[in-house]
Design a protein around this nucleic acid. Structure first.
Lengths: 227, 227
DNA sequence: GACAGTATGAAACGTCTGTTTGACTGTGTC
DNA sequence: GACACAGTCAAACAGACGTTTCATACTGTC
């Protein structure tokens, strides 16, 4: 039964590209609802109602509620990872040898926050990620392998390249500090949006990015000088 | 019906202090299960089974599942706030005029992390707090008023007292940076504990506290010097 | 036209949920 | 003894849940 479904998902009608099919409508509706309410609190009936199709469609196209969730989650997760990793690589490449800590941190902070906070398909995705970490429905090491480790590796090595004297262990600690600050800001935007509409918070975002870059650059340098 | 229940909860048997009554067993079992699985994923039947009493007891003593949850949550929340606020006040009082940023931040970091990470009734409480923020079941501004604002006010004013030239807006940004780092560490301990037992992470905790104090002290000073 | 395969639909299935009911104890009061 | 009340219990309630079944269209192939 699983094979049957995989074949179905992989297949696409040759003639009309299957646009506006129930499958696409389900993905869109499910993303919106999963992000808003989480996996457990979103019922299959709510999704199919929003997608204007029958309850059975979820099992037909995605082999159940969990399959729909996994399809969405993996796609969004690799999007986010790519943006974060690329922001570091691009900054290192663009200004070879002339990269400052502030430049690197500003680029990473923007790449981290933009998809979570600005308009677009990843808006408020922070809620989905956090919920999945608190109540895992997918393989437990998926997030670790697909997001935490790659980003941590790339950013910590970039910090070491830009900061003379920074040891690997210190760099990893600094990455935790930086990610922690950015996650906190994402959360606060998420709460503010739920409470009163994110519009009031958005203008302050560039100021927060500047603060985090300044704060963290000083922190990283202090760690390197420490010993 | 609500009045009837309030009267019951407030009442205590004069003779034997009601120890080991169903009410206490329910609170203990519920805390353990709510922390582990969250509110929605914890069934009343699971709680009453763990507390070795009848399902109806939850409605009899606490006016329902939500009442039990609220009783627990408010109690733990004010515990945590008290510890955080007191750590700042105690440090300022103990070393009047001779308080360093590092001293203040180390004390706050320890007060923040200890109840969430060490053994005791608040262990892994970070999961309960995060879940409540993501999927609120209680008045939405409860967490804001009972935790965020008091801690933010006390810590930001302490930072300004200890750091000449730090403006109020900068201090608030620094508080967000500090809380963000500490929350991130709490989360990582929480995940590590779920994955493999927290024992492997505990020894590194003092090192993380030292890192956060050093990193953040430099960050705060950089913000003050910035303009 | 016959057939196979894809897609959609209404209805039902079995299970789990929080809550309620009514009966049954034990205790203290008059 | 009669009564009131707190506490506990098994049983049942009504509703929501994810999934399954079976019937029905549509589409391209022979």
């Amino acid at each position: 039964m699983a094979e049957r479904t995989k074949a179905r998902v992989a297949r696409a009608r040759p003639d009309e590209e299957q646009r506006d099919g129930a499958s696409e409508r389900l993905l869109e509706a499910a993303e919106r609802l999963f992000v808003q309410r989480g996996f457990a609190a979103t019922s299959v009936r709510a999704i199919t109602e929003a997608a204007r199709c029958n309850v059975a469609a979820v099992n037909y196209h995605f082999d159940g509620k969990l399959g729909l969730y996994e399809t969405l989650f993996r796609s969004r997760l690799s999007d986010l990872r790519r943006r974060r990793v690329e922001s570091v690589r691009a900054t290192l490449d663009r200004a070879r040898g002339r990269v400052t800590l502030e430049l690197l941190l500003t680029a990473f902070a923007n790449a981290f926050l933009e998809p979570l906070v600005e308009e677009g398909p990843g808006r408020h995705l922070i809620g989905l990620l956090s919920r999945e970490l608190l109540d895992p429905h997918l393989p437990p090491k998926l997030f670790q392998h697909e997001m935490v480790e790659p980003v941590q590796r790339v950013l910590s090595e970039a910090l070491m390249r830009v900061t003379p004297g920074l040891r690997r262990e210190q760099a990893v600690h600094c990455v935790i500090s930086i990610i922690g600050q950015l996650t906190q800001v994402s959360f606060r935007c998420h709460w503010a949006a739920a409470a009163e509409g994110c519009e009031r918070l958005r203008p302050r975002l560039p100021a927060m990015v500047e603060h985090i870059a300044r704060f963290s650059a000083a922190g990283v340098r202090a760690c390197a000088k420490g010993r």
